[in-house]
Computed example of a mutant assay.
Amino acid sequence: MTPFGDRLAAAMDAHGPVCVGIDPHPSLLASWGLDDEAEGLRRFGLAVVEELGGRVAALKPQSAFFERHGAAGVAALEDVLAAARDTGTLTILDVKRGDIGSTMTGYAEAYLGDRGPLRADAVTLSPYLGLESLRPALDLARRTGRGVFVLALTSNPEAAAVQHARHDGVPVAAQIADGARAENAAAPGERLGSVGLVVGATTGSATQDLGLDLAGVGGPLLAPGVGAQGAGAAELAQVFGRACGQVLASTSRTVLQQGPGRLHEAAAQVVEEVRAAMSA
């Protein structure tokens, strides 16, 4: 199988450097005329896939909104992921898992194996039990041609207490970036490595302040915060600099709040804005 990073690079070339979240907030469900229950989530997610499948670089379901409805909600998520696979659209399952040993292996098999009903093309992972604790997921993703996005620099204010902290004189976020770079360097010849980072588009000067070499990571940079959360051209340029070509901007409410029948037009507008920002 073609590595995830190369498949993502091709999808970004074809459809633009934007992924659209599938985040069924209760308020969004209500605005779509759907009930806040598992069937409403399923209908919401399938409608997003129907409109945007094959028309955006990736779709990013947020697992938590489905999980809160228990087994029926997880079943709805399985249906949404399967529908996206049928369109050939890449999926990034936003689960932010992080654990150790056999538990991390279980998470890896659930999301990155070839047979699990919750399998996706990539997942988000939390490295704060130590980046090496993610080894089962990193290794399985490489074997199955899938990818991971490791939380490195998020935009929530409380994250600085951990991500900006220094260990042996080096900021934790910089150590995570260095680890991702090393993983991607182990697979030379790929246009984009399959180990990416999550870097918030609203983190301001933090990348410079902490000395993060994002371009050197060699993998994709998933950038939440574009659109409704306030990040535009200036913010993307400040945060990512010469790594802008690796950015996969993530947007959700800006597109989803437009309602059914108008999603593609809204997503295309975000793509146009992000492309303009990256070429500035």
Results as ranks from 00 to 15, higher is better:
G40Y: 09
L52W: 04
A83Q: 00
E39C: 14
V56D: 03
A75Y: 07
A75Q: 11
A30G: 15
R55E: 14
F65L: 13
A75L: 13
L81D: 00
K60S: 11
L41D: 10
A47E: 08
R42I: 04
L46N: 03
A71G: 08
L77F: 05
E51M: 06
P26E: 10
G45E: 03
K60I: 12
A64K: 10
L81T: 00
A72C: 09
F65Q: 02
E67A: 15
L28N: 07
V74K: 09
V56P: 07
H69I: 06
R43K: 14
P61W: 01
V56I: 13
G40K: 10
V56S: 10
E50R: 14
L81Q: 00
E37D: 15
F65K: 02
L46G: 04
K60Y: 12
D36L: 11
P61L: 02
R42N: 08
A57M: 11
D86S: 14
E51D: 05
R43C: 03
A47I: 02
A75M: 08
A84I: 00
L52Q: 05
L28F: 13
L28P: 04
D36M: 08
E78H: 06
D35F: 13
H69E: 09
W32I: 04
K60L: 12
D79M: 02
V74W: 13
P26A: 12
G70P: 14
R42D: 05
A58P: 05
E78F: 06
L41T: 05
R85N: 00
D79Y: 01
R85S: 01
E50H: 08
S27M: 12
G40Q: 07
R68S: 13
G40W: 13
V48A: 07
V56K: 02
L29S: 06
R42Q: 14
E50K: 10
V49P: 01
A72S: 14
T87Q: 07
E51N: 05
L28K: 03
G33R: 08
F44I: 08
A47V: 03
R42Y: 11
S31G: 09
L46C: 04
G70S: 12
V80I: 09
R55I: 06
V74H: 09
S27C: 11
A76V: 04
L34M: 09
R42T: 04
A76P: 03
L34N: 03
L41C: 12
A58E: 07
G45T: 04
G73T: 12
E67V: 14
A84Q: 00
L81E: 00
A72G: 12
F66T: 02
L29K: 06
L29D: 04
L34A: 05
E51A: 02
G54C: 02
G40E: 11
A75P: 07
E51H: 01
R43P: 06
L41K: 05
E50W: 01
L41M: 15
F65E: 02
S31D: 14
G45D: 03
G45I: 01
